[in-house]
Nucleic acid binder design. Sequence first.
RNA 1: GGCGCCGUAGCCAAGUGGUAAGGCAGAGGUUUGCAAAAUCUCCAUUCGUCAGUUCGAAUCUGACCGGCGCCUCCA
Length: 499
Amino acid sequence: MNVRLYNTLTGQKEPFEPADPNHARVYVCGPTVYDYAHLGHARCYVVYDVLVRHLRSDGMKVTYVRNITDVDDKILKRAAETGTEPTELATRFAAAYSEDMHRLGNLDPDIEPRVSTHLEDILALVQRLIDGGHAYVADGDVYFSVESFPQYGKLSHRDLGKMKVGASDRLDDAQTARKRHPADFALWKRSANDAWGWESPWGRGRPGWHIECSAMSMKHLGDTLDLHGGGLDLVFPHHENEIAQSEAATGKPFSRCWMHNGFVEVDKEKMSKSLGNFFTARDLFDRIEPEAIRYFMMTVHYRAPLSLDWTLDEAGNVTGFPQFEEAERRVAYLYKTKQRLEGLPPKRVSDSGAPSSPEIAGFSAALRESLDDDLNMPVALAKLADFLKAVNELCDEATRKKGKAPRNSVDWAKAGFGALEAELGLGAESADVVLLRIRDRRARASGLEAADIERRIADRSDARKSKDFSEADRIRDELAALGVELLDGPEGTGWTMAD
RNA sequence: GGCGCCGUAGCCAAGUGGUAAGGCAGAGGUUUGCAAAAUCUCCAUUCGUCAGUUCGAAUCUGACCGGCGCCUCCA
């Protein structure tokens, strides 16, 4: 295990060393389920999915906990706006979120705790903080006292005295009046008697945003986590506050390593629900193979911003996403390569002991090394490009007249695809299924019927048989004008849609 | 005001002291009846600008120019 990760707490890359070297306990902040997951969420959870896959590929046991925040004021607000019950709204979006995660190829977390089923743990932690003198009750609210925790600011590297409180212009005056220090934050918020809430020693209310993650992570993983992750926007205040609450309560370090992924940006601005400039993962699934979205998320280092780009027609409608389309071409190339390898006839495989190319034999190790270095996914994809090229070369060799591919190379190549799936979660599906799905989606987008296309292909095959090449070419040109590309092969003519 | 990030080819993007990965686009070759697919070759003497440190810098230091994030809604 040689994994090095950038730790926000120390500001540098360092070896990832769980307390138990064979077992990593990882907590990632999940979504608040009041809307569909957008591409920012998609990126975040793909990143941590690759982290978990990589650690497991290295032989480590990982307990992956990713919460769902199903109790929150945003849910309350959205429910009121849409005339739904908050619990019902949260349940619906949690299910949609789970479905989107699956389509992106993310593994389920081992534990997916929800706020609604952890109220007792939250109440106990709040009480513990009050008892320890780190929190106080003010008119039915409970606040954490930042001054009771001298290390406050250590994660986000800020100094309480130098912070411009209210710089984001989002303070609630009534709440501010109840606080002893302007940076104090709510652990428990009073609810009106008829509103969504739970009984507590301080009256009816609901938990503040930060306390849930402390309560749920420590309940499932113990007082000190090995790694805590989330989006860069959670560094302050969310994670800073989690540290304050948890460490004030237990007196132990809360997490050994803190990992944060960069934003997805739109027009050089952060994509977020509040700015309204987001695309949901679902919007994209209708246009693009979900695995292409996953692939695209890996083309940029996880800590760097990822800018999104799209094209518009005169009316201002979105006509395409060039980056995702390019990613889809790469995914199709990956599956075409996998299909060629799997389809090699046994008689084309020789038992000669010819050495395998380093790009094929060394692929698993190259993948591992790239990810060991702070999860460098762009480099992993570069290694993948080399690997796929070498596998195609191998297949070219085998399909040439009298050509054969050495068995050990074929075996290495198959193992390479196994490593790819295990480490990056790419290439896990059946090539036939994915390639047909991409083709048919594109044909549908162009308003074409497969049956019509295949009828013209049959006409052309007849023309070719009778050596009427000018007629054959005419039909091919006619189809090409519609975006249909023909692939003449020994088994007949197949077709695909141009990108 | 405080904290932090970024600027690498036409585009996307790695690389953080030893002489520029990978992808897209582009040019040429192999292959093909012609194509497509696949593959091969070529494609940054140079890393925002200007100084400095060093035998050596895209990588370190300083200044400047340009862009962005956070400072209690956020993944």
